[in-house]
Write a protein that binds this DNA or RNA. Structure first.
Length: 338
DNA sequence: TCTGGGGTCCTAGGACCC
DNA sequence: TCTGGGGTCCTAGGACCC
């Protein structure tokens, strides 16, 4: 018996929940995103069913692009409460197994398990999730969260894959650095400029060079990722958010400063009702102007507060520090807790 | 591909103090 | 009295993830 980390990833989660609610959608391309009207500008795909992915549609893609690629798909608005309920049902199924469950967003979880046969455990979990909720999932098995997370992507949908320290170099060594969980396009480009294209090259890189380029924490961490290392602690402790935010991208640009101020006040007022008793210590305002230029301004409050009017006034005072000379496509407010 | 919304963490640089 | 160096706090922005 030994310890394993499993990562469970629900397949095409939001689309799958919609198909459960309306079985006539089964087998058809289903695309969930925005208000469900794919002609609305400035909205993006949240989840595409596997049938829709055949047309090159994926999450993050503008809805209008999805419509061009897949005009016959069924387009649906996002329905967060429905996804939260389905997610909770899945997590409850996981907790019936002798595993430690760490919820990682709506459609993912890490599981800590002690067993001789993690594949059989994974198949048992998949079967139970599907029997009880109708949803399918992929499961990755690893020595740590990083390995398990990557393994879960190897065979989707409904797959079970294992990636461990023993197989790491064989499986990952020649892949591009973007294959690692935490390295995106920007970092990959900077690594390529240093001559580091593959996981093996990054693993063999000089930590001092990485630290000089990416900073004292991030530099060494990149190499750590490339060596296949990662967090092994699984915790059931509920996540305590550091802060909350709300933002709005307007379908049509805002040009009226009074309307902008009203919107900032509304966003701040909404946040003030969502603190769950945690005092706010900092407020940040975000403005995205035409064409697509984003700036933030923030202020630490003189003292922690729960008072809605104080939070709104702080947000407005911060907003008034922006040069207001361009049409605005996005306004946002975020708060940070003590 | 004309680019959402909600999060987290890190870094650089300036202000200020001793 | 023409100028050091360290520590801490704060702000703005960047990168990544789902």
């Amino acid at each position: 018996m030994r310890d394993w980390v499993l990562h469970l990833d629900l397949d095409a989660f939001m689309a799958a929940v919609e198909i459960l609610r309306n079985p006539e959608l089964r087998g058809r391309p289903v695309i969930v995103g925005g208000n469900g009207d794919p002609t609305t500008p400035r909205t993006v795909v949240s989840t595409a069913s596997y049938e829709a992915r055949e047309y090159g549609v994926h999450s993050g893609m503008p809805m209008r692009t999805a419509l061009r690629r897949c005009p016959d798909a069924v387009y649906l608005p996002t329905d967060l409460p429905a996804y939260e309920a389905a997610s909770a049902a899945v997590m409850a199924v996981l907790r019936t197994f002798p595993v430690v469950v760490e919820v990682w967003g709506l459609d993912e979880a890490f599981l800590g398990a002690r067993t001789d046969d993690p594949e059989t455990l994974a198949r048992d979990i998949q079967r139970a999730v599907t029997d009880k909720t109708g949803l399918t999932c992929s499961i990755g098995i690893g020595d740590n969260k990083h390995q398990a997370k990557l393994a879960a992507q190897f065979e989707k949908p409904s797959g079970v894959s294992r990636l461990t320290t023993d197989t790491w170099t064989d499986v990952m060594g020649e892949r591009p650095t973007t294959a690692l969980w935490g390295i995106g396009a920007k970092t990959a480009k900077k690594l390529a400029d240093l001559g580091l294209h593959t996981v093996n090259q990054l693993a063999a890189a000089d930590p001092a060079v990485l630290a000089a380029r990416f900073g004292p924490t991030n530099g060494p961490w990149l190499r750590y990722l490339a060596l296949g290392r990662g967090e092994t602690t699984i915790t059931t402790a509920p996540w305590v958010p550091r802060g909350h935010s709300h933002e709005t991208t307007f379908t049509h640009d805002l040009t009226d400063p009074a309307a902008m101020r009203d919107h900032i006040a509304a966003l701040a007022g909404r946040l003030a009702t969502e603190t769950e008793g945690r005092p706010v210590i900092r407020v940040t305002v975000k403005v995205r102007s035409v064409p697509f230029v984003t700036h933030t301004r923030q202020a630490k409050l003189p003292e922690p507060t729960l008072d809605a009017a104080t939070i709104q006034q702080a947000a407005l005072a911060i907003f008034d520090r922006f040069a207001q000379d361009r049409p605005v496509r996005l306004l946002g407010v975020s708060v940070e807790y003590a």
